[in-house]
Design a protein around this nucleic acid. Structure first.
Length: 215
DNA sequence: CCCATGATGCCCT
DNA sequence: GGGCATCATGGGT
């Protein structure tokens, strides 16, 4: 199992956002594993990006994990009851990152369905299956990602690994549903003026767990 | 299917 | 006190 190293995240953030597609997000909780393949991401380009939490160089307690090392995890709470996960890019002091917006559930489906809908996987409706991890906060609920993991490197309990032959075999990853990478506008940032139109969202055209597709 | 709306609490001003 | 990198629900089509 090859965990992505700091160097992976020490590249320009757009490149990292695109290259995170296809990688596998895994959460190890005691003795169980849950995880999925990343199928949708968004890049947030730091202090000059009006959509970013650190726009203008803000250094409030909430956003400090963004100033951490490449490969750090930034998990923030939003709308009262949800959280979202970012993988931090660039060197210490340069606060950029990639929001993980959707994954395809693969590992520990039994636990994922329990965490998300408190049901057995084979009792889920088709709609519920598609709703397991098709959004930035849905995937956190499904993989039991909480602020416990905030400001920790993504190479331990919460980690992102290569989707290589090893992983495919180990986790019995079947035929990949991907298609081309689509570049699109970021979601939920209407306040960001001209930055709201930047094409900083990336997703697999043919994957059904993407949160929102363009026409 | 699509769209509109309310929930809900932390974080910042 | 206002805003928020969201989600679930309910009604119309």
């Amino acid at each position: 199992m090859k965990i992505l190293k700091s160097e992976f995240y020490l590249r320009d953030t757009i490149t990292v956002a695109k290259n995170l597609l296809g990688k596998i997000l895994i959460h190890k909780i005691d003795n169980i594993l849950v995880g999925g393949k990343i199928v949708e991401t968004e890049a947030y380009l730091g202090i000059n990006d009006k959509a970013a939490h650190v726009y203008g160089g803000r250094k409030t307690p909430r956003v400090m994990p963004m100033y951490g090392p490449p490969g750090n995890g930034y998990i923030y709470s939003i709308y009262g009851k949800y959280v979202c996960l970012n993988a931090i890019t660039q060197e210490v002091g340069t606060p950029q990152g990639v929001l993980i917006r959707a994954v395809e559930p693969l590992i520990g489906l039994k636990y994922i369905s329990r965490f998300r809908f408190d049901k057995e996987y084979n009792e889920l409706t088709k709609k519920e299956i598609l709703n397991l991890t098709s959004g930035p906060s849905k995937l956190c609920l499904a993989l039991k990602i909480t602020k416990e993991q905030n400001n920790k490197m993504l190479n331990d309990e919460l980690m992102i690994i290569e989707n290589d032959d090893d992983a495919k075999k180990l986790f019995e990853i079947k035929e990949d549903l991907e298609g081309k990478i689509v570049e699109s506008k970021r979601i939920g940032i209407d306040y960001a003026e001209e930055a709201k139109d930047y094409l900083y969202r990336f997703y697999y055209k043919d994957n059904s767990f993407v949160s929102k597709k363009d026409k």
